[in-house]
Design a binder for these strands. Structure first.
Lengths: 246, 246
DNA sequence: TAGGCCATGTGGTCCAACCACATCAACTAC
DNA sequence: GTAGTTGATGTGGTTGGACCACATGGCCTA
């Protein structure tokens, strides 16, 4: 038969072998969130591969939001297991947008889809809604000058993510976050196309409060419609002028 | 002030520097899908970093479905830019499922959400529907024994992806594909819980044809309902027995 | 006892070599 | 002249070893 070496793994590249081992540890529950991977040198010796290959595997896991690497000693050091699906989805989408194989329009459309569903699905008494309400107050407090637009938008993102979280679906939340991240730069530029940021911000806030009120009133269907109109309206207002400049 | 070396990039780690450079090339259109990256050794020299760091960056891009690396010479060799968002999302979701921080139920729910939307959105004359129909014929042709269940399910996946493609949203298609990939192993095990695979497969096929007919009849709303019932019904049938065994 | 200092262990980076692979051109045998 | 072989070339794949920056903690000194 074939080799009886413990390290026979077919055509698999070395770093994939390491990935497979780590994924198995995760599936078997021998590695859990918060736990630490063996040190790179140790792991390399255990698996009979070079440290380089171990590092390549860890880099991939880092990019996928599965681990975090820290130098030095102490609690922040070492490679520890985390769970940040949004990071992976976000950078992936961002890069594919860069290759121009993921149209911005499709991203916006997907955002509307997910966010409408979340609004319809959110429970009226979800604790995330209180955070959302607090964010709205914070947004009222920021100035209405275009200089503060970035600050306002940052809070806006967190508000929408809070609504998504209120639906209680981790996958939808992660996807929502990644969609926002992937078009973050784009959305920022859009504000430059708005004729009057002050007016727009005030309108957005009014719509935000309507959406939140609908959810808290257990009128999911209405909330979903409001959310869709809210998002589409914003991109239409900013986007039309954007294309009109061309 | 600080160093005036051309390679001062703040706290960024070396491989991130390479990633940033490549992402900029993509955004600027200097690198497009189908294009080739400079050879690893060349790129390392150009950017003033080690080949190791270049390779770590490329590994990340590979995991994100942005490039494909091939050894040797000729058209298949070298590191070429591709665009496979599904690969990135799929492996990310799969790993996070392994960490048990993404409930399977949430993935199934999200799948229903996306697929219902796609069914409602698909155009009746979309060319992808012909591929879907061909897949259904192929599924009729495979045996009904449980031994062929894997083959049937593989075609089933492609059928559903074809429907998603018919909606014409690349982001939704990519997410759909990644969701299927992330629970592929899980779905396969479920068939073992079914009392009679033959009967189930025949029923699934009937539902498939109803869905396809509804889309072709331009009745998106009906198609969406059928799809939701189709997916939820399958998981309920297989899943209930699964938990009942415990 | 309080302070500084170094041993230790972590990831971060680099280098130099070697391998396997695929192509292509030059060369050789017929 | 043609067909086949062979080697040069260039690609990613892998390895071992060296050194660095960093953070801790214990030892040693004042």
């Amino acid at each position: 038969m074939w080799s009886n070496h413990i390290n026979y793994y077919g055509d698999m590249r070395t770093h994939q072998l390491v990935l497979t081992w780590i994924e198995k540890q995760l599936s078997d529950g021998e590695l859990t969130v918060g736990g630490r991977l063996p040190a790179e040198r140790t792991l390399a010796e255990q698996l009979g591969v070079s440290r380089t290959s171990v590092r390549e595997a860890i880099r991939i896991l880092e990019a996928l939001g599965v681990v975090r690497a820290g130098v030095g000693s102490g609690p922040e050091a070492g490679t520890v297991v985390i769970s940040d699906p949004t990071a992976a989805l976000g950078s992936a989408l961002r890069l594919h947008v860069a290759t121009q194989h993921l149209p911005i329009a499709d991203i916006v459309e997907t955002r509307v889809l997910l966010e409408s569903w979340a609004a319809a699905r959110a429970r009226a008494d979800a604790p995330e809604l209180e955070r959302a309400a607090a964010l709205l107050d914070e947004m009222d407090a920021v100035g209405r000058g275009s200089a503060e637009a970035d600050h306002f938008l940052a809070l806006d993102v967190r508000f929408h993510l809070s609504l998504a979280d209120a639906a209680g679906n981790a996958v939808v939340s992660a996807m929502m976050g990644s969609l926002r991240e992937s078009i973050q730069g784009y959305a920022g530029k859009l504000t430059a196309n708005l004729p009057d940021w002050d007016t727009t911000a005030t309108r957005l806030q009014a719509e935000h409060r309507d959406i939140l009120a609908a959810i808290r009133n257990d009128d999911g269907g209405h909330a979903a419609k409001l959310v869709a109109a809210h998002i589409e309206g914003y991109y239409r207002e900013a986007g039309v002028r954007h294309t009109a400049k061309a």
